[in-house]
Each structure stands twice: as structure tokens, then as C-alpha cells.
Nucleic acid binder design. Structure first.
Lengths: 225, 225
DNA sequence: ATCTCGAAATCTGTTGGACAGGTTATAGCT
DNA sequence: AGCTATAACCTGTCCAACAGATTTCGAGAT
């Protein structure tokens, strides 16, 4: 783990300044040089933090004028914090139940043939990975993502990607725990995915939603019986 | 718009390198100094871009070794693109239907008294803003966020925040269009929210989910009849 | 006293060089 | 061939400096 970047600390410190001093939207932050001497680091470090804050939509820099608060992080801090550092892990599965079930339903009704081919390709990759007994969580997530994409609604991708890092962490943990999966588990995982993909192929919305919900439920049980 | 940062261009260029050269996950990127001379900028600029890429989960830097591809940006580009630049706007409402309806349902069953007080406070703020005939989309979104928080599951906040910028854009556009809202519309918006909050207060899961879904549906109709 | 205008102070954006502390690759030795 | 020490390389950090934009403030005019 390489979490030892000074700019990470600077990022958190600036967020703390905005929260504790209750800087309103539009307020100006201390200058980069001032922040640097406050934190005891160089200006380059502060800049790395500010660039990230700007790309996260929290601050906005105006050349010659300063950096300004664009949206209060205290009001939407969750988006910038790894889910794993928040309580109630596995909570992302609760969201996936509703989010992905609806995505499967919509994918079944609205998918184009091109999107369907994309989903089938993801299914093939997952099958190959599972049958070669390799860690397949990347292919697993990728298939789910292709299904979300098949809705034609980018908002599903946005929401799914927001949970990405946490889902990946959970899945990887699951792979680490059960390093050698018995063949019947592999067959089950494969069948679950195939039912979902099959329902989308057959343009059966309710079947797709139900299959997805069941698959996620079983997946959760496999991770935490 | 301040799009005039060289590191923004460097960010895009590195993404392009990963995509075009088809660098697999785990592959090593060119060194910072090499990238700097490739782009004709200083190393500090490349670092600003790499820090953002790392915080976006695309790359990972190992001290002394180099920067490595952590996940292919081409496969999950949506998370790093404003929803407004993608087709099918108003699509975020489709996600909100399922996401927030489930959040309301869970909030009704699991809310603590403290979370309930937080929701009530948001309701008061929205009421004050609406009755003073001021633009109230900030208070509106904030109330919805407090409800998501009342589930006790941070994953709902993560997903909601991911849609934040698009929802805000849509709502602000709605305010701009109908600059002077008739009193009956204000009363309706207030009542819709009050029904949702009331169901959560009464710990009525189905009522809360239904009220939220209805409210979002009406809100969507108000924006795009 | 107030307004206007221009210059100084301030701030971000960017550069180049430097060094510390890691990692990788290589050349030399056994 | 196998092993080891060392050189080459890489990220993380700091410093000093300058360009270009903006804010501030005071001097002069009204």
C-alpha cells in the first residue's frame, strides 16, 4: 500500500479547513503559498492537492485571483471518501440490488443488437476466466458493467462506477479467502450469469431483473454466509 | 470556464496513451520525466496529472518503481466524464427512481431518531426557501441527500453524489426556465416532500418508497412535460 | 469627499534543477 | 550458472524563479 503521499494529507487538511471554518460556497481559500507554510510542505504538494480538489468539484482556481470553494465537501463528503473507510461494508450490495436489477430490466427492453453483442462478449470472457480457474472478479465486474451500459442510459454507468472501487475490494477479498474454488461453485456462478444474459437476450425484463437480484443475493451469501 | 491547465491536457494525453497503446492492467507507464519531455511540459505538470489519475483509480504509483495501470480508463470512462456531456440527458432521473425509492424505504425502516431530526431539518430549510420564493434546488437536493443518509448505508450517498452534478444542472435549468413559479406549484412541491418525510417519520417503508417515486415522477414531468 | 485610473501587491500557472529514498537491472565475481 | 554488489532509474519532495492575471490601494483629478 502506497498511501504515504503528502498531498493526500494536504487534500484532507484543506477539506478540514473548509469544513471547520465553515467557508461558504464562493469563499476564497488561503493562497497556495500560505497553505504550504501552514502544512509545512512545499507549494508543489499543495498544488497536487488543489488540482485533485478542483477535479472533484470541491474547489475552483482562478488564475491571479485564488482558489474558491465551489461546493461544500461537508455536504457531500461521501463521494470523495473510499467506501471502505466508511462503516457498514458490503452496503454497496444493497445498492446494487436495486440499481443493477433495474439496469438488467431496462437492458432487456432497450438493448440494441450491438449492445447485446457487447454483453455476450463479456460473458465469454467471464466464462473463459472461470473455466481456467483464474481470479475472475475483473471479468465479473466487467460483465455487470456491460449490462449497465446496455440500458443506453449513461447515468447507470455513473452510479455503477461510483461503487466500483468498493465492489472490487469486496470481490478481491472474496477471491483471497476462498483461493481454490470448488468446481460446483464455478458452475453455479457461471449459470447465474448465463440466466441473466439469457433473459436480456430474450428481451424478458422481469426475468432479467429477477435473475440479477437472485445472482447478487447469492453472491453476497458466498462472500458472507 | 478555466480549462487552461496544462495538467488537464496531460491527463487526457496519458489516458490516450493507455488506450491507444493498449496497455494492459499492471503495465508500467513511461517515467514522469519521459512523459514530461513527450508532452513538452515540466515534470510538475505530469505529476499533477498522475496524482489525479491515481485518485481516479486509473493508475497507481510505486515509489522507485514507476506508475502502473490499475484499471483501463476506456472501460469505465463514464466515471470521469460529466454526465451532461453524454447523450440522453434526464437519464439520471431513471436511476433516481429506483435508487431514491429504495433509500426512502430503508430510511423508513432503519432511521435513528438523530437521522430523522436531520431529515426534518432539511425539510424545514426547503420549506423556508420555497415559501420565500427563492431558488430552492440546493435545499431540495440537500433534503434528498439527508434521506439517503438516513438509510445508514453510505453506499447510497456514494451513488447519489455521483449523480449530483447532473441533477443539479437539470434542476438549475428548471429554475431558470420557470423563473416565477405559481403558488400552486410551490404548494405541490412542498406537499410531495412532506408526504415522503411523513412516511419516513411514521416508519412506513412502502409509503415512503411510493411517495418518493411519485414525487420524482412529478418532478420530472414539471421539468419536461 | 468622491471618483477614476494606474501601479504595486498578490495569486495562480509553470519551469528547471536538486536531492532523498526506494526499486530494477546489470556487470562482475565466485 | 548462480549470486551479489553496485549503478542506473524512478517517485516523492523541496526550492527559487518568472510569466500572466487579478485584486487592492493610493495618488491625482473632479
Amino acid at each position: 500500500m502506497n498511501q504515504t503521499r503528502l498531498s493526500d494529507h494536504a487534500y484532507a487538511s484543506i477539506v478540514e479547513i473548509i469544513k471547520s471554518r465553515e467557508l461558504e460556497v464562493g469563499a476564497r481559500l488561503p493562497a497556495e503559498s500560505r497553505l504550504a507554510e501552514m502544512f509545512g510542505v512545499s507549494r508543489a504538494i499543495v498544488r497536487e492537492a488543489l488540482v485533485r480538489l478542483a477535479s472533484d468539484g470541491i474547489t475552483e482556481a482562478r488564475r491571479g485571483a485564488g482558489s474558491f470553494v465551489k461546493s461544500r465537501p461537508s455536504e457531500r463528503l461521501a463521494a470523495f471518501m473510499p467506501l471502505s473507510e466508511l462503516p457498514s461494508t458490503l452496503g454497496s450490495y444493497e445498492v446494487r440490488f436495486v440499481l443493477e436489477a433495474e439496469a438488467a430490466r431496462l437492458a432487456a427492453t432497450r438493448r440494441t443488437s450491438q449492445e447485446m453483442a457487447h454483453v455476450e462478449e463479456g460473458m465469454e470472457r467471464l466464462r473463459a476466466a472461470l473455466l481456467s480457474n483464474a481470479p475472475a472478479h475483473a471479468e465479473d465486474m466487467d460483465l455487470h458493467r456491460r449490462i449497465a451500459a446496455a440500458t443506453g442510459n449513461p447515468a447507470f454507468l455513473i452510479a455503477f462506477d461510483a461503487l466500483w472501487s468498493d465492489v472490487e475490494r469486496i470481490m478481491r477479498a472474496g477471491v483471497d479467502i476462498s483461493r481454490s474454488r470448488p468446481p460446483e461453485v464455478i458452475a453455479t456462478m457461471l449459470r447465474e450469469h448465463e440466466i441473466v444474459v439469457g433473459a436480456i437476450r430474450a428481451q424478458d425484463p422481469e426475468g432479467a431483473a429477477l435473475a440479477m437480484r437472485w445472482h447478487l443475493w447469492e453472491g453476497r451469501r458466498r462472500l458472507m454466509p
